[in-house]
Structures are given as structure tokens and as C-alpha cells.
Simulated assay, not measured.
Amino acid sequence: MPLRLIFMGTPDFAVPTLLELVAHGHEVVAVYTRAPKPAGRGMKMQPSPVEQEARRLGIPVMTLGTLKTPEALAEFRTHNADAAVVVAYGMILPQAILDAPRYGCYNLHGSLLPRWRGAAPINRAIMAGDAESGVMVMKMDVGLDTGDVAMAERLAITDTMTAADLHDALAPLGADLMVRAMGGLERGGLQLTKQSEDGVTYAAKIEKAEARIDWTRPAREVLRHIHGLSPFPGAWCEMAGEAEPVRLKILRCELANGSGAPGDVLDDNLAIACGDRAIRIVELQRAGKGPMKSAEFLRGTALKPPARLD
């Protein structure tokens, strides 16, 4: 029989999993998501992507500020769920909540655990130069992404991938994986394996101070730093302006030949010298403007030798 599920998630990354669970006949009896936040020019309250989809599907939505009260636990138990599926929910689940569903709570995590436990696994994998990433389904415990693993899928990371690219590749891969995991749970055949204690790393939340580009680093490290922060918060540098420096977010780049002092503009097509070799800027965003390809940027801005980016 299909499972009776609670779904807990918030951002775009979680939406494919919700849709796939519903499409495969599971009964999603409630969706827990973060409360609406002000967004846009008018700062209107914007429901999360998961809330928008849940309401479209006619699923009851809960936007609690905490799960640690007796009232929250009592309400959670009233759903009489077989399991809870958690995808980037954004809140800590206390032990009482983890224990409430019949078969427990299962999390979809965007890394190959135990590597990159924590908040920003997609960004950190790219920034660290990892050759691969993936998704894993684990049965949750009270630790930070320390639960036993049920299933995994791997995906190669190329130097052309930005965080947005990897996010968009992992989201449907994870949705399919979670559907297969819930199918195994439904049939009583879901096998769990303890995580290794070797190779544990933590994907700390991205801090704004990390976003400034350091041109003294090797070109490939600069490229991975830029791509790991694209599109948000965006790795940035400054170019000289008429009155004051102008901030540029670099969104996409490629490795290039050439050398010079780190930060030097090497040609008319936005090749920039790094600690070794160079990168060529492919897409960027000037402060106050939208993202644009380098050719469009150069039509309105002269940036060629002997200019430099700081």
C-alpha cells in the first residue's frame, strides 16, 4: 500500500521530490515548510516554493516557527504518518518529532555523505574542487547529517558547472532516489548502512566575506570559487570607476592561457591573470544591473590592458 507521508521542505530544490511522491501515489497528508518571507520590490510576503506547490495540490500546509513545543509535537502526531520526508526544510527536528512517524524520518541530502554534512554541500563541493557530488537518502537522527544511509546516486562535477547547474541536476536525481527509497520502505526492504567515520567534512553556511575573489590563487581554484558561489551570493571583484570602484559579480568563467600579475586584464576578451595561468570571464553582473554575457558587457564598458581587477 502507498505510504502516508508528511513532507518537510522549503526551497526549489525540494519541489521535485514532493511532486514525485504525489505522482507515485503516496498520500502526502501535510506539508511543513518555512513561513513566508518579504521579497521583491514591494517586499510582499512570499510563500516558499514548497508551500506554493502544496497549496496547488490541495495539501494542508504548516508554517510553524518551532517544532520543540508540546503543541507542535501533538499536532505532528495527529497526522498518523508512516514516515516523514525531509528535503532542505531549514529547521532542526527534535528527537520526539523524529520518533513520531511509524518508520521514522528520511532526509534527502545533496552530497556524498559523510563528505559535506551541513548547510551548503552543493557550493562547498564545487569550491573544494571535488570531482563528483551526489544525493543520499538517510534515516535521520539528532546529529548533523549523521544518520544511516539508505540509498545514493553520484554525479560528476565538471569545471563548467556552477552551483545553480549542480543544484538543477541533483534536484530531480534526488526526487527519483527518494521515490525509490519510499518504495523500498513500503515493501519492507529498505536497507540502512552506517556512515563511515572517515572523510567527514562540514559544509558551513556561505559567508559574504568569502565571496571576494583572490586573483593570487591558481586559475582553477579561482574558477571553482566563482562557480561555487554562482549565482548567489556571487563571487566579486572591483574595477576602477570614474568616481569610485565598481563591483562586478563574476557568474561564469573558463580556464584561459596567459600570465601576468594577478588581477591583470590580459586581452580584449576578459582574460584575467591568476596566480598561475588565467580565467576568461563568460558571464558577469555589474552592480545595479542584470546578469550579462561578456560580449554584451564589453559593448558598454571598456575593460582591456593595462586595466586590472582588484
Score class of each variant (00 low, 15 high):
Asn107His: 07
Asn123Cys: 09
Val142Ser: 14
Asp145Tyr: 04
Asn123Tyr: 10
Asp148Ile: 08
Ala125Arg: 01
Ala96Asp: 13
Asn123Pro: 01
Ala84Thr: 11
Tyr103Ser: 03
Ser111Val: 07
Arg124Asn: 13
Val87Glu: 07
His79Val: 05
Asp159His: 12
Leu57Ser: 12
Asp168Ser: 10
Asp168Trp: 03
Val87Cys: 08
Ala84Val: 04
Met138Ala: 08
Ser111Ala: 14
Lys139Asp: 00
Asp130Tyr: 08
Leu166Cys: 06
Asp168Tyr: 05
Ala83Tyr: 10
Ala119Cys: 02
Ala169Ile: 04
Ile157Tyr: 05
Gly104Thr: 07
Ser133Phe: 02
Asp165Asn: 15
Met127Gly: 05
Ile126Val: 14
Met62Ser: 03
Ala156Asp: 10
Thr160Ser: 14
Trp116Ala: 02
Met161Val: 09
Gly104Val: 05
Cys105Ile: 05
Thr162Val: 06
Leu155Gly: 00
Asn80Trp: 04
Ile157Leu: 12
Ala125Leu: 04
Pro121Trp: 09
Ala100Pro: 01
Lys139Arg: 15
Ala72His: 09
Ala171Ile: 03
Ala88Arg: 08
Val149Pro: 00
Thr160Pro: 00
Val86Trp: 12
Met62Pro: 00
Leu108Gly: 01
Ala152Lys: 15
Met127Ser: 06
Arg115Tyr: 12
Val137Gln: 01
Leu113Thr: 11
Ala125Met: 02
Arg117Trp: 11
Leu98Asp: 05
Gly134Ile: 06
Asn80Met: 07
Asp145Leu: 02
Leu166Val: 15
Arg102Thr: 15
His79Ala: 06
Val86Arg: 06
Ala72Cys: 07
Asp130Lys: 08
Lys68Trp: 05
Ala171Asn: 02
Leu57Gly: 13
Asn123Glu: 10
Asp130Asn: 11
Leu155Thr: 05
Val149Glu: 01
Asp145Phe: 03
Arg124Ala: 11
Ala169Val: 08
Pro121Ser: 12
Leu113Ser: 07
Tyr106Asn: 00
Ala100Met: 04
Ala164Pro: 00
Lys139Pro: 00
Arg154Val: 10
Ala163Phe: 07
Met140Gly: 05
Met127Arg: 11
Ala156Trp: 08
Gly129Arg: 09
Gly65Asn: 14
Leu73Trp: 07
Ala156Gln: 11
Asp145Met: 03
Thr162Gly: 08
Ala171Glu: 02
Met127Ala: 13
Glu71Trp: 11
Tyr89Trp: 13
Val137Arg: 00
Ala128Asp: 15
Val87Met: 11
Val137Ile: 15
Leu93Ile: 13
Gly104Ala: 10
Ala83His: 11
Ala150Trp: 03
Ala96Glu: 15
Thr146Val: 07
Val85Glu: 04
Asn80Leu: 06
Phe76Asn: 02
Ala81Val: 13
Gly134Ser: 11
Gly90Val: 11
Asn80Phe: 05
Pro94Glu: 10
Ser111Arg: 02
Pro94Asn: 10
Tyr106Met: 01
Lys139Phe: 03
Ala100His: 01
Leu64Asp: 12
Ala152Asp: 07
Met136His: 02
